[in-house]
Write a protein that binds this DNA or RNA. Structure first.
Lengths: 206, 206
DNA sequence: GAGTTTAGGGTACTGTTCGTACCCTAACTC
DNA sequence: GAGTTAGGGTACGAACAGTACCCTAAACTC
Protein backbone atom coordinates (compact mmCIF):
# COMPACT_ATOMS: atom_id res chain seq x y z
CA UNK A 1 0.00 0.00 0.00
CA UNK A 2 2.13 2.90 -1.28
CA UNK A 3 1.95 6.01 0.83
CA UNK A 4 -0.39 8.39 -0.86
CA UNK A 5 -0.59 11.72 0.88
CA UNK A 6 -4.07 13.05 1.42
CA UNK A 7 -4.55 15.82 -1.06
CA UNK A 8 -3.31 19.04 0.50
CA UNK A 9 -3.05 17.69 4.03
CA UNK A 10 0.24 18.01 5.84
CA UNK A 11 0.07 14.65 7.59
CA UNK A 12 1.26 11.59 5.68
CA UNK A 13 -1.52 9.19 6.42
CA UNK A 14 -0.89 5.75 5.03
CA UNK A 15 -4.49 4.68 4.93
CA UNK A 16 -7.14 6.29 2.82
CA UNK A 17 -10.43 6.87 4.57
CA UNK A 18 -14.01 7.82 3.76
CA UNK A 19 -14.70 9.66 0.54
CA UNK A 20 -11.16 9.34 -0.77
CA UNK A 21 -11.27 5.58 -0.61
CA UNK A 22 -14.77 5.50 -2.00
CA UNK A 23 -13.62 7.53 -4.98
CA UNK A 24 -10.71 5.19 -5.59
CA UNK A 25 -13.02 2.19 -5.53
CA UNK A 26 -15.48 3.76 -7.93
CA UNK A 27 -12.70 4.79 -10.28
CA UNK A 28 -11.32 1.28 -10.26
CA UNK A 29 -14.76 -0.19 -10.88
CA UNK A 30 -15.33 2.20 -13.75
CA UNK A 31 -12.04 1.17 -15.34
CA UNK A 32 -12.85 -2.51 -14.97
CA UNK A 33 -16.30 -1.93 -16.49
CA UNK A 34 -14.73 -0.21 -19.44
CA UNK A 35 -12.25 -3.00 -19.97
CA UNK A 36 -14.31 -6.09 -19.31
CA UNK A 37 -17.94 -5.05 -19.34
CA UNK A 38 -20.34 -5.92 -16.58
CA UNK A 39 -20.07 -9.65 -17.00
CA UNK A 40 -16.31 -9.46 -16.67
CA UNK A 41 -16.39 -7.26 -13.59
CA UNK A 42 -15.16 -9.00 -10.45
CA UNK A 43 -14.96 -7.71 -6.92
CA UNK A 44 -11.48 -9.17 -6.49
CA UNK A 45 -10.14 -7.20 -9.43
CA UNK A 46 -11.83 -3.97 -8.42
CA UNK A 47 -10.39 -4.31 -4.94
CA UNK A 48 -6.94 -5.03 -6.28
CA UNK A 49 -7.08 -2.16 -8.71
CA UNK A 50 -8.22 0.23 -6.02
CA UNK A 51 -5.49 -1.01 -3.70
CA UNK A 52 -7.94 -2.12 -1.08
CA UNK A 53 -9.88 -5.24 -0.25
CA UNK A 54 -13.41 -6.52 -0.55
CA UNK A 55 -14.34 -5.60 2.99
CA UNK A 56 -14.10 -1.94 2.20
CA UNK A 57 -16.26 -2.45 -0.87
CA UNK A 58 -18.95 -4.48 0.87
CA UNK A 59 -19.08 -1.94 3.66
CA UNK A 60 -20.38 0.52 1.10
CA UNK A 61 -22.27 -1.45 -1.51
CA UNK A 62 -24.37 -4.54 -0.80
CA UNK A 63 -23.64 -6.32 -4.02
CA UNK A 64 -21.68 -6.44 -7.20
CA UNK A 65 -24.61 -5.03 -9.12
CA UNK A 66 -24.91 -2.08 -6.75
CA UNK A 67 -21.23 -1.26 -7.15
CA UNK A 68 -21.52 -1.50 -10.91
CA UNK A 69 -24.47 0.85 -10.99
CA UNK A 70 -22.65 3.35 -8.83
CA UNK A 71 -19.58 3.14 -11.03
CA UNK A 72 -21.62 3.38 -14.20
CA UNK A 73 -23.27 6.52 -12.93
CA UNK A 74 -19.91 8.20 -12.95
CA UNK A 75 -19.11 7.15 -16.47
CA UNK A 76 -21.96 8.66 -18.35
CA UNK A 77 -20.79 11.36 -20.61
CA UNK A 78 -22.93 14.38 -21.06
CA UNK A 79 -22.05 15.25 -24.58
CA UNK A 80 -25.54 16.49 -25.15
CA UNK A 81 -25.67 18.77 -28.11
CA UNK A 82 -28.91 19.73 -29.73
CA UNK A 83 -28.37 19.76 -33.49
CA UNK A 84 -29.77 22.55 -35.61
CA UNK A 85 -29.89 21.63 -39.28
CA UNK A 86 -32.75 23.96 -39.99
CA UNK A 87 -35.20 21.15 -40.60
CA UNK A 88 -36.78 18.47 -38.48
CA UNK A 89 -35.61 15.47 -40.46
CA UNK A 90 -31.99 16.50 -40.24
CA UNK A 91 -32.19 17.24 -36.56
CA UNK A 92 -33.97 14.00 -35.78
CA UNK A 93 -31.47 11.94 -37.76
CA UNK A 94 -28.55 13.60 -36.03
CA UNK A 95 -30.02 12.93 -32.64
CA UNK A 96 -30.82 9.35 -33.51
CA UNK A 97 -27.39 8.69 -34.97
CA UNK A 98 -25.75 10.09 -31.87
CA UNK A 99 -27.94 7.90 -29.71
CA UNK A 100 -27.10 4.88 -31.85
CA UNK A 101 -23.40 5.53 -31.49
CA UNK A 102 -23.77 5.91 -27.78
CA UNK A 103 -25.96 2.90 -27.19
CA UNK A 104 -23.80 0.75 -29.47
CA UNK A 105 -20.70 1.67 -27.54
CA UNK A 106 -19.26 -0.33 -24.68
CA UNK A 107 -21.08 2.07 -22.41
CA UNK A 108 -24.40 1.27 -23.99
CA UNK A 109 -23.69 -2.40 -23.62
CA UNK A 110 -22.94 -1.95 -19.96
CA UNK A 111 -26.23 -0.17 -19.50
CA UNK A 112 -28.20 -2.99 -21.07
CA UNK A 113 -26.43 -5.52 -18.91
CA UNK A 114 -27.11 -3.51 -15.80
CA UNK A 115 -30.77 -3.23 -16.66
CA UNK A 116 -30.90 -6.98 -17.09
CA UNK A 117 -29.21 -7.76 -13.79
CA UNK A 118 -31.20 -5.18 -11.84
CA UNK A 119 -34.51 -6.48 -13.05
CA UNK A 120 -35.50 -7.96 -9.69
CA UNK A 121 -34.44 -4.94 -7.72
CA UNK A 122 -36.70 -1.88 -8.00
CA UNK A 123 -34.30 0.26 -5.99
CA UNK A 124 -31.39 -0.51 -8.26
CA UNK A 125 -33.54 0.05 -11.32
CA UNK A 126 -34.63 3.39 -10.00
CA UNK A 127 -31.03 4.28 -9.37
CA UNK A 128 -30.08 3.36 -12.90
CA UNK A 129 -32.81 5.60 -14.24
CA UNK A 130 -31.73 8.43 -12.00
CA UNK A 131 -28.10 8.08 -13.04
CA UNK A 132 -28.54 7.74 -16.76
CA UNK A 133 -30.33 11.02 -17.05
CA UNK A 134 -33.02 9.49 -19.20
CA UNK A 135 -34.90 12.72 -18.99
CA UNK A 136 -32.08 14.70 -20.48
CA UNK A 137 -32.66 12.82 -23.69
CA UNK A 138 -36.36 13.59 -23.65
CA UNK A 139 -35.52 17.24 -23.30
CA UNK A 140 -33.43 17.27 -26.45
CA UNK A 141 -36.09 15.59 -28.52
CA UNK A 142 -38.69 17.99 -27.22
CA UNK A 143 -36.45 20.93 -28.11
CA UNK A 144 -36.00 19.71 -31.65
CA UNK A 145 -39.71 19.00 -31.97
CA UNK A 146 -40.60 22.35 -30.52
CA UNK A 147 -38.56 24.04 -33.22
CA UNK A 148 -40.27 21.97 -35.88
CA UNK A 149 -43.68 23.02 -34.58
CA UNK A 150 -42.61 26.66 -34.70
CA UNK A 151 -41.46 26.14 -38.29
CA UNK A 152 -44.75 24.49 -39.17
CA UNK A 153 -43.06 21.15 -39.83
CA UNK A 154 -44.98 19.37 -37.11
CA UNK A 155 -48.43 19.55 -35.63
CA UNK A 156 -48.63 21.25 -32.22
CA UNK A 157 -50.35 18.18 -30.79
CA UNK A 158 -47.19 16.21 -31.41
CA UNK A 159 -45.43 18.03 -28.61
CA UNK A 160 -45.75 15.21 -26.08
CA UNK A 161 -42.91 13.38 -24.32
CA UNK A 162 -44.01 9.98 -25.44
CA UNK A 163 -44.28 11.12 -29.02
CA UNK A 164 -40.99 12.97 -28.92
CA UNK A 165 -39.09 9.91 -27.72
CA UNK A 166 -40.54 7.34 -30.11
CA UNK A 167 -37.33 7.12 -32.19
CA UNK A 168 -35.24 6.37 -29.11
CA UNK A 169 -37.67 3.69 -28.03
CA UNK A 170 -37.56 2.12 -31.47
CA UNK A 171 -33.78 2.28 -31.47
CA UNK A 172 -33.60 0.58 -28.11
CA UNK A 173 -35.90 -2.14 -29.34
CA UNK A 174 -33.62 -2.76 -32.31
CA UNK A 175 -30.57 -2.95 -30.08
CA UNK A 176 -32.30 -5.38 -27.79
CA UNK A 177 -32.62 -7.91 -30.54
CA UNK A 178 -29.53 -7.24 -32.62
CA UNK A 179 -26.60 -7.66 -30.32
CA UNK A 180 -23.50 -5.58 -30.27
CA UNK A 181 -23.11 -4.51 -33.84
CA UNK A 182 -25.25 -1.42 -33.70
CA UNK A 183 -28.18 -0.51 -35.85
CA UNK A 184 -27.53 0.07 -39.58
CA UNK A 185 -28.12 3.59 -40.80
CA UNK A 186 -30.87 2.51 -43.18
CA UNK A 187 -32.88 1.41 -40.20
CA UNK A 188 -32.39 4.77 -38.53
CA UNK A 189 -33.54 6.48 -41.72
CA UNK A 190 -36.55 4.20 -41.87
CA UNK A 191 -37.47 4.92 -38.28
CA UNK A 192 -37.43 8.64 -39.00
CA UNK A 193 -39.03 8.54 -42.44
CA UNK A 194 -41.64 5.82 -41.96
CA UNK A 195 -42.62 6.44 -38.38
CA UNK A 196 -41.44 9.64 -36.84
CA UNK A 197 -41.98 12.24 -39.52
CA UNK A 198 -45.41 10.87 -40.47
CA UNK A 199 -46.31 10.75 -36.79
CA UNK A 200 -45.49 14.35 -36.03
CA UNK A 201 -46.67 15.69 -39.34
CA UNK A 202 -49.72 13.65 -39.86
CA UNK A 203 -49.84 10.73 -42.14
CA UNK A 204 -51.79 10.97 -45.35
CA UNK A 205 -51.27 13.49 -48.03
CA UNK A 206 -47.55 14.28 -48.02
CA UNK B 1 -31.44 -44.87 -13.03
CA UNK B 2 -34.87 -46.43 -12.97
CA UNK B 3 -35.59 -48.65 -15.89
CA UNK B 4 -37.67 -46.75 -18.33
CA UNK B 5 -38.80 -48.83 -21.25
CA UNK B 6 -38.32 -47.25 -24.62
CA UNK B 7 -41.70 -46.13 -25.77
CA UNK B 8 -43.35 -48.97 -27.61
CA UNK B 9 -40.25 -51.08 -27.97
CA UNK B 10 -40.33 -54.63 -26.72
CA UNK B 11 -36.79 -54.58 -25.33
CA UNK B 12 -36.26 -53.16 -21.85
CA UNK B 13 -33.25 -50.94 -22.44
CA UNK B 14 -31.97 -49.34 -19.29
CA UNK B 15 -30.27 -46.43 -20.96
CA UNK B 16 -32.02 -43.76 -22.92
CA UNK B 17 -30.34 -42.81 -26.15
CA UNK B 18 -30.48 -40.12 -28.82
CA UNK B 19 -33.68 -38.17 -29.21
CA UNK B 20 -35.36 -39.65 -26.15
CA UNK B 21 -32.58 -38.46 -23.88
CA UNK B 22 -32.43 -35.12 -25.63
CA UNK B 23 -36.13 -34.64 -25.01
CA UNK B 24 -35.73 -35.47 -21.35
CA UNK B 25 -32.94 -32.94 -20.98
CA UNK B 26 -34.89 -30.20 -22.71
CA UNK B 27 -37.97 -30.93 -20.62
CA UNK B 28 -35.89 -30.74 -17.47
CA UNK B 29 -34.29 -27.50 -18.58
CA UNK B 30 -37.67 -26.01 -19.38
CA UNK B 31 -38.95 -26.91 -15.92
CA UNK B 32 -35.91 -25.40 -14.26
CA UNK B 33 -36.32 -22.22 -16.34
CA UNK B 34 -39.93 -21.95 -15.26
CA UNK B 35 -39.04 -22.41 -11.62
CA UNK B 36 -35.86 -20.44 -11.28
CA UNK B 37 -35.56 -18.25 -14.34
CA UNK B 38 -32.45 -18.11 -16.44
CA UNK B 39 -30.22 -16.79 -13.70
CA UNK B 40 -31.22 -19.66 -11.47
CA UNK B 41 -30.67 -22.31 -14.11
CA UNK B 42 -27.75 -24.63 -13.37
CA UNK B 43 -26.38 -27.47 -15.41
CA UNK B 44 -26.12 -29.69 -12.34
CA UNK B 45 -29.78 -29.33 -11.59
CA UNK B 46 -30.89 -29.86 -15.16
CA UNK B 47 -28.79 -33.01 -15.32
CA UNK B 48 -30.17 -34.29 -12.05
CA UNK B 49 -33.73 -33.56 -13.04
CA UNK B 50 -33.28 -35.30 -16.36
CA UNK B 51 -31.71 -38.28 -14.64
CA UNK B 52 -28.49 -37.93 -16.58
CA UNK B 53 -25.23 -36.11 -16.18
CA UNK B 54 -23.49 -33.08 -17.58
CA UNK B 55 -21.54 -35.05 -20.16
CA UNK B 56 -24.68 -35.87 -22.05
CA UNK B 57 -25.70 -32.23 -21.98
CA UNK B 58 -22.38 -30.88 -23.16
CA UNK B 59 -22.29 -33.40 -25.92
CA UNK B 60 -25.29 -31.67 -27.38
CA UNK B 61 -25.10 -28.02 -26.38
CA UNK B 62 -21.87 -26.04 -26.09
CA UNK B 63 -22.97 -23.85 -23.23
CA UNK B 64 -25.55 -23.10 -20.64
CA UNK B 65 -26.94 -20.30 -22.76
CA UNK B 66 -27.37 -22.58 -25.74
CA UNK B 67 -29.25 -25.11 -23.67
CA UNK B 68 -31.47 -22.40 -22.26
CA UNK B 69 -32.31 -21.09 -25.69
CA UNK B 70 -33.17 -24.55 -26.90
CA UNK B 71 -35.34 -25.18 -23.88
CA UNK B 72 -37.00 -21.79 -24.17
CA UNK B 73 -37.87 -22.51 -27.76
CA UNK B 74 -40.02 -25.35 -26.59
CA UNK B 75 -41.83 -23.28 -24.05
CA UNK B 76 -43.28 -20.58 -26.19
CA UNK B 77 -47.00 -20.77 -26.32
CA UNK B 78 -48.74 -19.90 -29.50
CA UNK B 79 -51.91 -18.46 -28.17
CA UNK B 80 -52.09 -16.10 -31.07
CA UNK B 81 -55.56 -14.80 -31.51
CA UNK B 82 -56.33 -11.79 -33.63
CA UNK B 83 -59.00 -9.76 -31.86
CA UNK B 84 -61.91 -8.26 -33.76
CA UNK B 85 -63.63 -5.51 -31.81
CA UNK B 86 -64.86 -3.81 -34.92
CA UNK B 87 -62.58 -0.81 -34.49
CA UNK B 88 -58.87 -0.26 -34.60
CA UNK B 89 -58.47 1.17 -31.13
CA UNK B 90 -60.08 -1.82 -29.49
CA UNK B 91 -58.12 -4.30 -31.54
CA UNK B 92 -54.83 -2.55 -30.90
CA UNK B 93 -55.46 -2.35 -27.17
CA UNK B 94 -56.36 -6.02 -27.01
CA UNK B 95 -53.20 -6.99 -28.84
CA UNK B 96 -51.05 -4.75 -26.71
CA UNK B 97 -52.60 -5.98 -23.48
CA UNK B 98 -52.04 -9.56 -24.50
CA UNK B 99 -48.44 -8.75 -25.35
CA UNK B 100 -48.01 -7.00 -22.02
CA UNK B 101 -49.34 -10.01 -20.15
CA UNK B 102 -47.06 -12.29 -22.06
CA UNK B 103 -43.92 -10.20 -21.78
CA UNK B 104 -44.58 -9.55 -18.10
CA UNK B 105 -44.87 -13.25 -17.39
CA UNK B 106 -42.00 -15.45 -16.24
CA UNK B 107 -41.63 -16.43 -19.87
CA UNK B 108 -41.16 -12.85 -20.94
CA UNK B 109 -38.58 -12.39 -18.25
CA UNK B 110 -36.68 -15.41 -19.43
CA UNK B 111 -36.66 -14.03 -22.94
CA UNK B 112 -35.16 -10.73 -21.84
CA UNK B 113 -32.49 -12.52 -19.86
CA UNK B 114 -31.65 -14.72 -22.81
CA UNK B 115 -31.35 -11.74 -25.10
CA UNK B 116 -29.00 -10.15 -22.62
CA UNK B 117 -26.78 -13.18 -22.28
CA UNK B 118 -26.69 -13.95 -25.99
CA UNK B 119 -25.61 -10.48 -26.90
CA UNK B 120 -22.10 -11.49 -27.91
CA UNK B 121 -23.22 -14.49 -29.88
CA UNK B 122 -24.88 -13.72 -33.24
CA UNK B 123 -25.76 -17.36 -33.79
CA UNK B 124 -27.56 -17.64 -30.50
CA UNK B 125 -29.33 -14.36 -31.10
CA UNK B 126 -30.48 -15.56 -34.47
CA UNK B 127 -31.74 -18.73 -32.88
CA UNK B 128 -33.69 -16.79 -30.30
CA UNK B 129 -35.30 -14.76 -33.05
CA UNK B 130 -36.13 -17.87 -35.00
CA UNK B 131 -37.66 -19.57 -31.98
CA UNK B 132 -39.71 -16.72 -30.64
CA UNK B 133 -41.68 -16.35 -33.80
CA UNK B 134 -41.22 -12.61 -33.80
CA UNK B 135 -42.73 -12.44 -37.23
CA UNK B 136 -45.95 -14.02 -36.09
CA UNK B 137 -46.53 -10.94 -34.00
CA UNK B 138 -45.89 -8.63 -36.93
CA UNK B 139 -48.46 -10.56 -38.86
CA UNK B 140 -51.17 -9.98 -36.31
CA UNK B 141 -50.56 -6.28 -36.16
CA UNK B 142 -50.59 -6.07 -39.93
CA UNK B 143 -53.88 -7.96 -40.02
CA UNK B 144 -55.48 -5.60 -37.56
CA UNK B 145 -54.06 -2.61 -39.38
CA UNK B 146 -55.21 -3.96 -42.73
CA UNK B 147 -58.76 -4.16 -41.43
CA UNK B 148 -58.53 -0.60 -40.19
CA UNK B 149 -57.41 0.58 -43.60
CA UNK B 150 -60.33 -1.22 -45.19
CA UNK B 151 -62.69 0.47 -42.73
CA UNK B 152 -61.14 3.85 -43.43
CA UNK B 153 -59.74 4.15 -39.95
CA UNK B 154 -56.15 4.29 -41.10
CA UNK B 155 -54.28 5.68 -44.06
CA UNK B 156 -53.18 3.06 -46.63
CA UNK B 157 -49.60 4.27 -46.32
CA UNK B 158 -49.57 3.12 -42.72
CA UNK B 159 -49.50 -0.51 -43.84
CA UNK B 160 -45.80 -1.02 -43.22
CA UNK B 161 -44.22 -3.58 -40.85
CA UNK B 162 -42.27 -1.00 -38.96
CA UNK B 163 -45.33 1.13 -38.46
CA UNK B 164 -47.55 -1.79 -37.52
CA UNK B 165 -45.21 -2.93 -34.77
CA UNK B 166 -44.56 0.41 -33.13
CA UNK B 167 -46.72 -0.38 -30.06
CA UNK B 168 -44.82 -3.59 -29.41
CA UNK B 169 -41.52 -1.78 -29.68
CA UNK B 170 -42.71 0.87 -27.26
CA UNK B 171 -43.96 -1.81 -24.89
CA UNK B 172 -40.62 -3.56 -24.96
CA UNK B 173 -38.86 -0.32 -24.23
CA UNK B 174 -41.06 0.21 -21.19
CA UNK B 175 -40.40 -3.29 -19.94
CA UNK B 176 -36.69 -2.83 -20.37
CA UNK B 177 -36.62 -0.03 -17.90
CA UNK B 178 -39.37 -1.01 -15.52
CA UNK B 179 -38.43 -4.41 -14.20
CA UNK B 180 -40.76 -7.27 -13.58
CA UNK B 181 -43.95 -5.58 -12.61
CA UNK B 182 -45.39 -5.11 -16.05
CA UNK B 183 -46.56 -1.97 -17.72
CA UNK B 184 -49.58 -0.20 -16.22
CA UNK B 185 -52.65 -0.09 -18.41
CA UNK B 186 -52.66 3.71 -18.59
CA UNK B 187 -49.32 3.51 -20.35
CA UNK B 188 -50.71 1.03 -22.84
CA UNK B 189 -53.64 3.35 -23.48
CA UNK B 190 -51.26 6.25 -23.91
CA UNK B 191 -49.14 4.34 -26.38
CA UNK B 192 -52.20 3.61 -28.48
CA UNK B 193 -53.91 7.00 -28.13
CA UNK B 194 -50.94 9.33 -28.26
CA UNK B 195 -48.72 7.51 -30.69
CA UNK B 196 -50.29 4.68 -32.59
CA UNK B 197 -53.68 5.99 -33.58
CA UNK B 198 -52.33 9.42 -34.58
CA UNK B 199 -49.57 7.68 -36.52
CA UNK B 200 -51.81 5.48 -38.61
CA UNK B 201 -54.55 8.03 -38.97
CA UNK B 202 -52.57 11.13 -39.47
CA UNK B 203 -51.98 13.61 -36.81
CA UNK B 204 -53.65 16.98 -37.02
CA UNK B 205 -57.31 17.56 -37.57
CA UNK B 206 -59.06 14.71 -35.76
C1' DG C 1 -21.99 -64.66 -32.48
C1' DA C 2 -17.77 -62.01 -31.94
C1' DG C 3 -15.55 -57.86 -32.08
C1' DT C 4 -15.60 -52.91 -32.29
C1' DT C 5 -17.40 -48.44 -31.60
C1' DT C 6 -20.35 -45.05 -29.54
C1' DA C 7 -22.48 -42.62 -26.10
C1' DG C 8 -24.86 -42.85 -21.56
C1' DG C 9 -24.34 -42.85 -16.62
C1' DG C 10 -21.10 -42.13 -12.94
C1' DT C 11 -17.53 -39.75 -10.31
C1' DA C 12 -14.11 -36.39 -9.57
C1' DC C 13 -11.62 -32.31 -10.43
C1' DT C 14 -10.09 -27.42 -11.54
C1' DG C 15 -10.50 -22.70 -11.51
C1' DT C 16 -13.10 -18.85 -10.55
C1' DT C 17 -15.91 -15.86 -7.97
C1' DC C 18 -19.27 -13.97 -4.60
C1' DG C 19 -19.85 -13.07 -0.18
C1' DT C 20 -18.44 -13.86 4.66
C1' DA C 21 -15.41 -14.19 8.72
C1' DC C 22 -11.70 -12.88 11.45
C1' DC C 23 -7.36 -10.37 12.68
C1' DC C 24 -4.33 -6.37 13.48
C1' DT C 25 -3.82 -1.64 13.80
C1' DA C 26 -3.84 3.23 11.74
C1' DA C 27 -6.69 6.94 12.37
C1' DC C 28 -10.01 9.47 14.77
C1' DT C 29 -12.63 11.26 18.82
C1' DC C 30 -13.15 12.62 23.51
C1' DG D 1 -4.27 7.97 26.99
C1' DA D 2 -8.44 5.08 26.32
C1' DG D 3 -11.93 3.61 23.42
C1' DT D 4 -13.92 3.16 18.89
C1' DT D 5 -14.09 2.80 13.94
C1' DA D 6 -12.84 1.33 9.58
C1' DG D 7 -8.97 0.16 6.46
C1' DG D 8 -5.80 -3.36 4.90
C1' DG D 9 -4.79 -8.21 5.13
C1' DT D 10 -5.71 -13.17 4.91
C1' DA D 11 -8.53 -17.14 4.68
C1' DC D 12 -12.66 -19.72 3.94
C1' DG D 13 -17.09 -21.96 2.26
C1' DA D 14 -20.35 -22.65 -1.18
C1' DA D 15 -21.62 -22.68 -5.72
C1' DC D 16 -21.06 -23.53 -10.44
C1' DA D 17 -19.40 -23.86 -15.43
C1' DG D 18 -16.83 -26.67 -17.78
C1' DT D 19 -13.48 -30.58 -18.22
C1' DA D 20 -11.47 -35.18 -17.54
C1' DC D 21 -11.67 -39.93 -16.94
C1' DC D 22 -13.88 -44.54 -16.14
C1' DC D 23 -16.98 -48.44 -17.02
C1' DT D 24 -20.13 -50.62 -19.83
C1' DA D 25 -24.88 -50.89 -22.06
C1' DA D 26 -26.32 -50.50 -26.49
C1' DA D 27 -25.73 -50.22 -31.26
C1' DC D 28 -23.31 -51.37 -35.23
C1' DT D 29 -20.44 -54.19 -38.44
C1' DC D 30 -18.70 -58.30 -40.39
Amino acid sequence: MAGEPDGGRASAATRRRGAVLEQAILDAAAEELKESGYSGLTMDRVARRAGTNKNAIYRRWPSRAALAVAAYGRMTVTEARVPDTGELRGDALELLRAANRHLSSPLGRILLDLLASARDDPDLLAEIQARTGGDGLTGMWLTVLGRAVARGEAAPEALHPRVATVPIALLRNELLTRGVTGVPDEVLVEIIDEVYLPLVRGRGPR
